[in-house]
Amino acid sequence: MTAQISTLGQLLSAAGTQWRAYDIGRRITKIDKKQFAQIEGTLIPYPYPLAGHALIAIQFWDNNATLDPYVWFLKLPLDEQSKLVAASRDHFANMVLEALGTEITGEQAQGKLDNNPYVFTPNANKLAAFNALLKREINRPASQYYEYAELYFAGKLPENAWQNVAVQGLADFAFRLEHSHNAKNLHSVWSSLPIQVKQPLSAMLEHVPTGTHLSKLFYNDCISALRNKQLDILICNLRALSATKAQGLLLQATDLILADELANEADILLTLTGRCWEAFNEQSRLFILLDKAAHNTQVDGLFTSIFADLVAIPSLRPHVLSILRAENRSETLSRAIGRLFS
């Protein structure tokens, strides 16, 4: 990279753009510019690692922009301490400079990075959620699918209309709960939604910090699903609850789930690990999760993958490593930990 440009932030600024960065690997989360600069300078680890990478969306636009912003979806490798591998970041930025110079917006930029090894395409749910968030944040209209979804949740369409509700419409609805009567309408119909709607909608709600009223509904439905042994319904409600502003409800739900036999299910353990990781800053809760994973025989390597996922998260790493020294482990957990180093 040039002497003047040594980070992505500098590249974006040198190109005369306004920009924002988001984590798009776990929960879609805005990364402020000061934190992003510290990440780029390897002063701090990446806060939301996923499978050894930082999955980042960078939204940028020039000051005269009349169109929607441009977006780079980047998959950048992290080291064993979850810090950005600067050489890979430099490689990407050099490829941008060689392909585009600092003219990174406009028609001439289209398609120039299609084969870049650090550019990736998020799955359909993440793309829909990010698009919905982006349009809300820049005060642009929602997609053409939003109005139909809004009518569906308002009960103004036939019962079988769910078959025509688009994923993008669900995303737009989830990110606009504060509009009109959307939150109230969702509260009214959530428990009776067909699973074909509830599952993709919960995949959007896991990125939305819901308030106490809706969060209590998701929490109560978690308890009901536990009581009735409804695995799919439990997972939907747990995902919908995972980004709640009412973190106490999420912690209570997590404890009740871990105490239930459904916590022996691999899908539950993976949902807790992937969506509710903040709950495991409490070491006793983390201990129970890892013990359940060690005892699971449904999925080969489940304990190893869950351990690797959690130990990479900077806020959890000290708690996970301390369990390696714990003396009150079950024999099964001790054997599972031993296999990590064999």
Rank of each mutant, 00 (worst) to 15 (best):
P314D: 03
L11A: 08
A246S: 07
R27K: 10
L241S: 05
L310K: 09
T105E: 13
S322H: 15
G301F: 05
L100P: 05
L256F: 11
D90M: 02
N182L: 04
E98R: 12
F120W: 12
H187N: 14
V85F: 05
S6N: 11
G9Y: 03
A87L: 12
S342M: 08
K112S: 07
C276V: 01
C276K: 03
S192W: 00
L321G: 06
Q38F: 00
L113K: 08
S305W: 03
T121A: 11
I104F: 00
R339K: 13
L151N: 02
D309G: 05
I39S: 04
A14N: 09
T304Q: 15
L258P: 10
I39A: 12
E178V: 09
S143P: 12
Y145R: 05
G274A: 14
T7Y: 08
Q108M: 04
R176V: 06
G101T: 10
P200S: 12
A259W: 08
D23Q: 11
D68A: 10
A3I: 11
N328K: 06
G52P: 01
A14V: 14
Q108C: 07
R335C: 06
I288F: 14
A240N: 12
G41N: 07
I306V: 04
G155Y: 02
S13P: 08
V96T: 07
A203E: 15
T2A: 06
Q252H: 04
F341I: 07
A263L: 07
Q298D: 06
E331Y: 07
V299R: 13
N264I: 07
R20W: 00
Y219Q: 14
A142C: 02
P69F: 11
R26A: 04
A21Q: 12
H53V: 01
S88A: 11
A142K: 04
E331V: 15
L55N: 02
Q110T: 04
Q108A: 09
F280H: 08
Q4D: 14
Q59M: 02
V71L: 05
E98N: 13
P209C: 12
Q4K: 10
F120M: 10
L269I: 15
N296Y: 09
D68S: 10
L226Q: 01
L134C: 10
K33C: 14
S13N: 04
H179E: 15
V197P: 03
L258E: 14
L333K: 12
L340E: 02
C222E: 02
Y22P: 06
A57P: 04
Q81V: 01
A142Y: 02
Y118G: 00
L8D: 07
T244M: 08
Q81I: 02
A65F: 00
D291E: 01
H207N: 15
V311E: 02
